[in-house]
Design a protein around this nucleic acid. Sequence first.
DNA 1: TTGTTTTATTCAAACGTTTGTTTGAACTTT
DNA 2: AAAGTTCAAACAAACGTTTGAATAAAACAA
Lengths: 209, 209
Amino acid sequence: MEYTKKQMTIIEAAEKLFAEKGFEGASVRDIAHEANTNVSMISYYFGSKEKLMEAVFDRRMEGSRAQLEALYYDQSLTTFQKIYALIDAYVGKLTSQPYFNKIWMREQVESQSCVIADKIEGVRERNFAVINRIVKDGQELGEFKHEIDCSLMMALLIGTTNQVLNNAKHYRRKHDLEKMSDDDFRTHLKETLTSYLKTVFKALLTYEA
Amino acid sequence: MEYTKKQMTIIEAAEKLFAEKGFEGASVRDIAHEANTNVSMISYYFGSKEKLMEAVFDRRMEGSRAQLEALYYDQSLTTFQKIYALIDAYVGKLTSQPYFNKIWMREQVESQSCVIADKIEGVRERNFAVINRIVKDGQELGEFKHEIDCSLMMALLIGTTNQVLNNAKHYRRKHDLEKMSDDDFRTHLKETLTSYLKTVFKALLTYEA
DNA sequence: TTGTTTTATTCAAACGTTTGTTTGAACTTT
DNA sequence: AAAGTTCAAACAAACGTTTGAATAAAACAA
């Protein structure tokens, strides 16, 4: 374990407040209070507020690379199943990390910190590479059509998912799901969105306009 | 004209800096400097930094409601053409207002200000209402299929467009368009995205899974 | 037109808070 | 005894906003 319990408490408090108020909006005093600790502990353990943000990012990003690689090399899955598994993985990850998802959205708009921007760029690059290889495989096997823009397809996957999750309230109201419990609604939204995206992707990968 | 030249200069400087640094990240001194004026003019003309942000929003939102209504009532368009026109309008608006688009993205994640959150909610509500009516019309005419989720379709439109525009650099690199001029690239991206979304929407509206 | 009064704008300076970070002594754990 | 941790207090810098005097513009009476 890289971080102690105390450090993880601070990281989680920071994640929550960065998500709710933004990097500039959340003060180190807010974060320390949320983590039930002293202000100076942030500098003591992480060096600075910005380094703390980097720790928040690193914590959520480790492992996702290996997971993606494993998916690509999984022999038991067809190319179509790999794409579907990719959708499941994305929606699952964004759903299970709502705070971090908000931070990511905010920072990708225009990141102040070059370090963070580079991390985001790295993840984008790796994701694209995997999608690209899966799609190419599928095309060579004759399962997918020829004209597929992986950049736009990836943007559709991430953009739609984020938009839905950030406007979950709107969706809930429009579908009269307000009596449903929060947990049930989250599960329902996740399943609906996943199957929606799979339908869209099937069309994108096979339907000749 | 509601605002004087001087006030518009401040609003535009604010729009730029709020987009680049976020609401908390951009100081009133930054904004005043960008607008070549004194710090106190912001309080003098707008009352506060937050009211200035509201002015930035109001300026970009007026007129969009009427435009959307006009589109719906346009008798010369088929329902399909209306959907396509909607896509054109969206992509066009988001492309032509890159600064405001970034602000919108940031604020919709979790707006600090209730006033801004209400403005965003209002726009979402109106957009949804128009899409919903167009889709219902198309279904009654037998042009669209029955099972269409307007919430998800709207999320796909807005989410994908924003994701593409915010990652335009990535798209440009992946498609080897870096020798193209900025203007040409913008036009190219806009056209590619528009036609991509139209294809997706055609599938969403007619393709039975 | 004239001079005068009123209103609107501009600006440097200052206001009181809050910001991220550091300090140095006290306290725990090795 | 040594190293690691905690905390209230203090640090300078930056924050949004206000002030009050100086200037410009507009309105008005002669």
